[in-house]
Design a protein around this nucleic acid. Structure first.
Lengths: 337, 337
DNA sequence: CTGAAAGCGCTTACAG
DNA sequence: CTGAAAGCGCTTACAG
C-alpha cells in the first residue's frame, strides 16, 4: 500500500507560514493565537494528514496525560467487560488510554507493568484477581495506581471493588437453602488474591450458619487436580458447590452433567461476576452481578482526583452488587419442603 | 504513597561511572561493551529502579517497535479472546503491544485509530466486525495494517479470517435438516461489514438449497426493532433462526424462551464464533468455532513479515474453522423422520 | 499575537 | 571498548 509521507509539526508550520511554536499553540488552542491563524493551521494540518506525535509531546510536557490499564485476561468476560467500561470512562473524559493484557504468572505481570511504565503512563489501573501484590506495589512505586475489582485494604494503594457483603449474602443463601456440606473452589496459587478472599468469606459465613465447607483446590489450572478434588467432594456428600467465578461455575456444571448428576436436583451450584451471558436466564445461574460500569467509573474518578492532587488519604471504594438467585440453587436432595 | 524519584539514563550512567552512550549500549546489549561494564550498568539500573522511557527511545530509534491492536469491544467474548491471543502472540515474540478498545460508531473508531497513530505504532491490527472501512484505510495510509477476523478482499490491506466455507457449511446444515423458511439476522448499519458478508453467505447457500431466507434486521441495536422483526419472522413460519454471532443466538434463545417456544422442538437456532462459554455443551449451541489462537498467530506473522519488508503482495489468509453441531439445531416441527 | 532557543530522555553516527 | 555531540518531534519559558 502506498503510505503517506508523515507530516510533522515543521511541515505544518511551513505550509501555514508560521513558526513551529505558533503552529503548536494553534493546534492545541493554547496561548493567544489569532483566530485566523488557528483556522489556517488547522486546515493545513488536516490537509497534510498531520497526527501529533504523542510520544514527543508527552516527553516534553510537564505532566503525562496517558493512562494505562492492565487487565489479567480479556478472554474472561469479567475482565473484557472491565476493559470496555474503563475505555468508555476514559473516552467520556477525553483521556488517552492504553491497555495491556497481563500474563498469568508473576513474570508476565511484571513485564506488563514495566511496559506501561515504559510508556510513561501518568497512572495505572489494574484489574486482575490474580495480581501479584509485588507487581502492583511496583507500579504504585512510580505512579498512582488503582486496583479494580480486587478487594484491598492496602495502606497505600487505592482500590475500587464490590461490597464483600455480597459474598457473605451468597453464602448465606446457600446455607439457608439447607445445604450443610458445601464444596468451595480454591486455588493453590498465592497470587490469586481475590479468589482467596472470596473463598474465606464464603467459608466464614457457611461456618457461621452451621454448614461445613469443603475446599476444592486446583481451580484454574490445566491439570486434573480440580476435577479429581471436585469429584471427591461430591462423593463425600457435598450438596452444593460455590465456585469463585462464573466460568468456574460453568465448568462445574459441565462436569456434573458429564457425571450424570442433575443441578439443582442433586447438587446446587453458584458462581460470581454475573457479567454478559453468564447472567442469562438460559443458564439460570445463581451468582452475584458485579457493577462493572460503576466500578470503572469510580476507578476513573479516583484516578483523576489522585492525579489532580485533590486527595491525600488512600481510598477503598466499595460498591453495591446484586444477588442473582437462579435455577442452579435449590434445596439439598432429601431436604423436606 | 511515597513515589520513587524516577531515574533516567543519566542517573544510571553517573552511578555506573560511564557515559550515557555506553550506558545505553550496555543496557541494550548493543555494540561492543566490556562484559564488566554491562554487568555494572545492569546492576546499577536495577538498584535505581530504572525503567527505560520507551517514548524517548522510539522517538530516536529509526524504526518504531511498538504494535497497536484495535478491538471493537472487549466485552464480547470473541474480541476479548482476540485481544488475549494477540497479546500472547506478541509476548512470544517479545513485541510491545498497545491495545485500544474502539468505539461503536465511526467517530469512536477514528479516534481509536488516531490514538494508536499518535503513539506511533509501527503497525496496526484491527479486529472489529464493525470497522468502518474508512477508518481502516486511514490507518493503512500511515502504517502496515492487518484486519483480523474480518473477511476482506481489500486490494491493499492484509487480512486474516476464517474460511467463509464455514458459513456456507453452517447454512447447508440448516437446509439439510429440512428447514425451508429460515430467519437470518442482519443489521442496517453499513459498517457491519462482517455481518453483512456472513448474512449474504447464509442467504446464498439457503437459496441454493431451495430454502427461503427471511431477513431479520435491527440486530445489535438497543431498540425494539429486532425483537419485533424476529417475532414477525417466527409468526410467519420460520422454523430456524441463523444468528450472525453467538451473543445474538443467545438473545434469540432467550426471546424464544420468553415466548414459550421450544428450541429445537419448534424452532432451531444457530450462532457463530464458538468462543469460550458459547461453545459449552450446556448451551449445546450449533455454531462455528473460530480458530482465534491461529488467527492471532497468523496476523502477527503477516505483520512481522510486512514490517520486515519481506512481502510485497497483499495477503488474505484464510484459516479453517470447526462446525459445531449442537442441540439447538433440529428438524423443523412436523418434518417426518 | 508570534518566534528563536532550549530541552524532554533517549539512540546513533562519528571519533578516538 | 568508550565518549561528545547531534537530533528524534514536540512544548515551554523568554523576548519581543
Amino acid at each position: 500500500m502506498q503510505r503517506r509521507a508523515r507530516a510533522d509539526l515543521s511541515d505544518v508550520a511551513r505550509a501555514a507560514g508560521v513558526s513551529r511554536s505558533t503552529a503548536s499553540r494553534a493546534l492545541r488552542g493554547e496561548g493567544r493565537v489569532s483566530a485566523e491563524t488557528v483556522a489556517r493551521v488547522a486546515r493545513v494540518a488536516a490537509d497534510l494528514g498531520y497526527v501529533r506525535d504523542l510520544r514527543a509531546a508527552e516527553l516534553r510536557e510537564t505532566a503525562a496525560t496517558t493512562l494505562g490499564l492492565l487487565v489479567r485476561g480479556a478472554e474472561r468476560s469479567f475482565y473484557g467487560e472491565v476493559a470496555a467500561q474503563v475505555q468508555a470512562a476514559a473516552d467520556a473524559r477525553d483521556i488517552d488510554l492504553l491497555i495491556v493484557n497481563g500474563g498469568d504468572d508473576h513474570d508476565g505481570q511484571f513485564r506488563a507493568v514495566q511496559a506501561l511504565l515504559g510508556h510513561r503512563v501518568a497512572g495505572m489501573m489494574i484489574a486482575s484477581g490474580r495480581m501479584s501484590l509485588a507487581a502492583a506495589e511496583h507500579a504504585a512505586t512510580f505512579v498512582p495506581t488503582v486496583l479494580i475489582g480486587m478487594p484491598s485494604s492496602h495502606p497505600e494503594i487505592d482500590s475500587v471493588a464490590i461490597d464483600p457483603m455480597l459474598e457473605t449474602q451468597l453464602a448465606a443463601s446457600v446455607a439457608r437453602a439447607g445445604h450443610r456440606r458445601v464444596a468451595v473452589t480454591t486455588s493453590d496459587r498465592p497470587e490469586s488474591t481475590t479468589l482467596h478472599l472470596r473463598t474465606a468469606r464464603f467459608r466464614d459465613e457457611l461456618i457461621a450458619r452451621g454448614a461445613d465447607p469443603v475446599l476444592v483446590p486446583g481451580v484454574g489450572e490445566d491439570g486434573q487436580e480440580f476435577v479429581t478434588a471436585l469429584r471427591r467432594a461430591v462423593d463425600g456428600g457435598a450438596t452444593a458447590v460455590m465456585a469463585g467465578d462464573d466460568p468456574t461455575a460453568v465448568q462445574v456444571l459441565e462436569l456434573l452433567d458429564a457425571w450424570g448428576m442433575n443441578c439443582p436436583g442433586q447438587i446446587s451450584v453458584t458462581g460470581f461476576d454475573g457479567v454478559g451471558v453468564y447472567a442469562s436466564p438460559l443458564f439460570g445461574l445463581t451468582t452475584v452481578r458485579q457493577p462493572v460500569e460503576q466500578l470503572a467509573a469510580a476507578a476513573m474518578r479516583v484516578m483523576v482526583a489522585r492525579l489532580g492532587g485533590r486527595v491525600s488519604a488512600v481510598s477503598h471504594d466499595v460498591l453495591p452488587g446484586e444477588l442473582l438467585i437462579g435455577r442452579t440453587l435449590g434445596k439439598p436432595a432429601g431436604h423436606g419442603d
